[in-house]
């Protein structure tokens, strides 16, 4: 099937099988390896990408659903070499350890801030319900999101 999508600002035309998962198309066809496969069951968020601004689990999402959509992956977060405030805040706060959850965390946070520019701690915890991190203990991730929200406003 034909698939036309804009990923991180550049347009792609692909021919994919209906059963291709978005995660595999991004990783294998477009070589965007930032989104990771972990739980493979929509629980952990490592595979999170934004489709028209909405977070989805690319591990359980047909690529053809993204036809005509604009996608954001972690590779598109920074503007050239200028980091997104979230990336900066994650670095500074020590919210990154092994990094396997990081791209999903960043994109989830990006979607949250798009909906809610001044989230409370509770708002963040609620939004992160499907975003697991086995390294950090979460405190620094929450702190980084709050910092990024403040610097973005």
């Amino acid at each position: 099937m034909n698939l036309t999508m804009v990923v991180n600002g550049s347009s792609h035309e692909l021919d994919v099988a209906p059963h291709s998962l978005l995660l595999d198309v991004l990783r294998d066809s477009l070589d965007l390896k930032g989104a990771k496969r972990s739980c493979d069951t929509q629980v952990c968020g490592a595979c999170t990408v934004l489709v028209d601004g909405q977070a989805v689990s690319a591990c359980t999402y047909l690529a053809v659903e993204a036809d005509g959509c604009s996608l954001l992956t972690v590779e598109g977060l920074a503007d050239g070499e200028a980091l997104d405030p979230l990336q900066r805040a994650f670095l500074d706060a020590g919210a990154v350890q092994c990094g396997f959850c990081t791209s999903g965390m960043l994109l989830t946070a990006r979607a949250l801030l798009r909906e809610n520019a001044a989230p409370s701690r509770e708002d963040i915890l609620h939004y992160l319900r499907g975003s697991l991190c086995r390294c950090t203990g979460y405190r620094k991730i929450v702190e980084a999101i709050m910092t990024a929200a403040r610097t973005t406003r």
Binding site: Q42, V43, G45, T48, Q54, A55, V56, S57, Y61, T108, A111, H126, Y127, R129, G130, S131
Partner: peptide, 12 residues
């Protein structure tokens, strides 16, 4: 609805 599953499952 706000408390069903997680935000990605709710989006889809």
């Amino acid at each position: 609805a706000r408390h069903v599953a997680n935000v990605r499952v709710r989006n889809v």
